[in-house]
Design a binder for these strands. Structure first.
Length: 305
DNA sequence: AAGCGTTCCAACCGCAGTCGC
DNA sequence: TGCGACTGCGGTTGGAACGCT
């Protein structure tokens, strides 16, 4: 069905590829009912995991990755199929504003939905919807169309190849929206930012390890659902706080979890929405101040202020 | 009905993190 | 400490379905 793209071919020449991807004779493409049945029966009996050896044991001519994906995104009993409800859509929008393209984190907050499904839904529906509303789907800030007179390092600038002043339709606008031209200061979207251990101490007691800078720069999330903060050193370089402390991590995890849960609450969201300038950090501060007595919002000094 | 363009989404890919040896 | 195996994530692809002419 699918053939390796030119990029993947060229990269695989220089890289050690995992055996499951190179084995000859493995089936690719859409799954058949028989394959689904084999996989479902096997996982029901033996449980998830050990994907590498699963295909052989289950009698499938697929690589482990493919089996895992099929199970996770389609066959798992908890997977909910069908239309995304308006409530789910709203939740996706809120979570994406906070988390960026952290699809697995977002999916973890929407029961029955998979990261792949949410990612697809975002790319095909929600990003276009936001663009049609004049909102940058990456930053959730108003779109600013390219002005030849403006400086080249402006953030949140997009170009509209057809007509920047009068987009004619959602579809047209979406097609003309050049994602490659966007610069974003938000580390959530910045691949150069390294996800590190969480900064638990500033959340769980009154100690502040450093000066908090701009909201977009300083709160990051890692795949373990932990919020963390960075600060700037004397040279204004962003410093990632890297203090391992399992207990603190655990607490930060709980706090972050509660924070996300709170966003499900409409009132909380509406309050925060009115303060989009300060975005994520302000949302978090509001939440922490209202729900965590030990959290001293004033301890967070911002270089930007 | 045929041809063509667009949309949607399942599946694939490379990469990075984690774990065990 | 280094290495390989395994797992999970986010980006991308391409074929089927759909809509328009």
């Amino acid at each position: 069905m699918r053939t390796p793209s030119s990029s993947s071919l060229s990269s695989s020449r220089n890289k050690v590829v995992t055996p499951c991807c190179t084995k000859i004779g493995l089936k690719r493409g859409p799954w058949t009912l028989e394959e689904d049945e084999l996989l479902t029966n096997y996982v029901s009996k033996e449980g998830e995991g050990r994907w590498r050896t699963l295909p052989k044991k289950a009698g499938l001519f697929r690589c482990g990755k493919s089996c895992r994906l099929r199970w996770m995104n389609y066959l798992r009993p908890s997977v909910k199929r069908g239309h995304i409800s308006p409530e789910e859509e709203d939740l996706i929008l809120r979570l994406h504003r906070l988390l960026g393209n952290r699809w697995s984190l977002i999916a973890g907050r929407i029961p029955g939905r998979t990261d792949n499904e949410i990612k697809n839904y975002w790319n095909t529906h929600l990003s276009k919807k936001l663009i049609s509303q004049g909102i940058d789907p990456r930053t959730h800030k108003p779109l600013i169309f390219n002005n030849p007179n403006s400086s080249s390092d402006d953030n949140h600038i997009i170009t509209n190849k057809a007509n920047s002043s009068s987009p004619s339709s959602t579809s047209k606008l979406a097609n003309d929206y050049d994602l490659n031209t966007i610069n974003t200061p938000n580390p959530i979207y910045n691949p150069n930012f390294q996800m590190k251990e969480p900064l638990g101490s500033s959340i769980n007691n009154n100690n502040c390890p450093g000066e908090i800078t701009s909201p977009d720069d300083d709160y990051q999330y890692q795949s373990s659902n932990v919020m963390l903060a960075n600060y700037r050193d004397d040279d204004m370089n962003i410093v990632v706080h890297d203090e391992g402390d399992d207990e603190m991590n655990c607490c930060a995890d709980d706090v972050f979890s509660s924070f996300l849960n709170s966003l499900i609450n409409e009132d909380m969201f509406m309050n925060c929405q009115n303060q989009q300038i300060n975005g994520t950090l302000q949302d978090f501060d509001l939440f922490m101040a209202s729900s965590t007595p030990s959290y001293d919002q004033n301890n967070l000094k911002r270089m930007d202020e």
